[in-house]
Simulated scan of single mutants.
Amino acid sequence: MTEHPGRRSGRKARTAGEPAPSVSLEAKLKPSQSRAHQTFEAILAVSGELLAEVGFERLSTNLVCQRAGLTPPALYRYFPNKYAILSELGRRLMDAQDRAVFDWIEAGGLVADSMDEAIAKNREIQETVNQITRDMPGGVWILRAMRAVPMLQDIRIASRDKVARHTAERLLEQYPASSTEEIYAATRITTELMMAATEMVLEQPDADEALVTQEVCRMVCLYYSQFAGGKTRYNL
């Protein structure tokens, strides 16, 4: 039966920019040969550039083909649609941010001898994550796509939870008497808060980045100081 415009049905309407549930978000081919790898990377690079110019709603595979000098069949060898491209870009951005956080933790980022030092260390990683996003072509629009397109939201959530779990494991080593549930809840909340701060300063040019970064780091440090239990060492 044909469903006429305006006829009510049991199906939930999709929001603008949201792909149909059957749309694939996976690359069709992960290239191993040099030439194919170059084409794969060129598609992603061009897509990032176009995102910065036209946004994710106006991005299309036709635009990518025109800019990259590819035919549609050549692009479709690697990506079935623009959402698969956005998915790959989102994973790459989140992976780059996650690696930076993990390296920061391994270098002692969670340990400080004073509140001022703790805030300074948190500022360091927050500024690093901001810069990683800023340096990636279309980085701001990739963040927006992961919020606006429901099928892409899992990429952002998976990144947040991976960082939160890793941070919680380290904090539990330092505070074995603390509740696992409370520590993990705290790391999820603070990771989400810092991700939101990154989105805020990059999406709103009039925001005072230094002030926003300073204040969000102060909030995180004060929150985590509760687990120190009155000790002089602040582990964040």
Rank of each mutant, 00 (worst) to 15 (best):
M1R: 12
M1N: 07
E3L: 09
H4F: 04
P5G: 02
R7S: 14
R8N: 06
R8F: 03
S9N: 03
A13T: 11
T15S: 07
G17I: 05
E18N: 10
P21W: 05
V23G: 02
S24F: 04
L25D: 10
L25N: 11
L29N: 11
P31M: 00
P31I: 00
Q33K: 04
S34I: 15
R35H: 01
R35L: 00
E41V: 12
S47N: 10
S47T: 14
S47A: 14
G48L: 03
G48C: 06
E49F: 04
A52N: 10
V54L: 00
G55P: 00
S60Q: 02
T61K: 14
L63E: 10
V64Q: 06
Q66R: 13
R67F: 05
T71G: 01
T71V: 02
A74F: 06
A74D: 03
L75I: 09
L75N: 05
Y76F: 14
R77N: 03
P80F: 07
A84S: 06
I85P: 13
S87K: 14
S87E: 09
E88M: 10
L89C: 12
M94Y: 08
A96N: 08
Q97A: 08
D103Q: 12
W104H: 03
I105H: 11
E106H: 03
A107D: 01
G109T: 05
G109Y: 01
G109P: 00
V111N: 10
V111M: 04
D113F: 00
M115P: 01
D116L: 05
E117T: 12
E117F: 05
E117Q: 09
I119E: 05
K121G: 04
E124H: 08
Q126K: 06
Q126A: 05
Q126S: 05
E127L: 15
T128D: 00
V129A: 07
N130T: 14
I132E: 01
M136N: 13
W141Y: 12
W141D: 14
W141E: 14
W141T: 13
I142L: 06
L143G: 07
R144H: 10
R147M: 08
R147K: 09
A148T: 14
V149S: 04
P150K: 12
M151V: 15
L152W: 13
L152S: 11
L152G: 09
I155V: 15
I155F: 11
K162Y: 09
H166K: 09
T167D: 01
E169V: 09
L172I: 13
E173Q: 13
E173S: 11
Q174K: 14
A177E: 09
S178Q: 13
S178R: 14
S178W: 10
S178P: 07
E181R: 03
I183W: 04
A185T: 08
A186W: 00
T187Y: 00
T191I: 15
E192W: 08
L193Q: 10
M194L: 13
M195E: 13
A197R: 11
V201I: 07
L202S: 06
L202R: 07
L202I: 09
E203W: 02
Q204E: 05
D206R: 12
E209K: 10
E209A: 09
A210G: 04
V212M: 01
V216Q: 07
C217T: 14
C217N: 11
V220N: 07
C221L: 10
Y223I: 15
Y224D: 00
S225I: 04
S225A: 03
G229L: 02
G229E: 03
G230N: 04
T232N: 02
T232V: 04
Y234P: 00
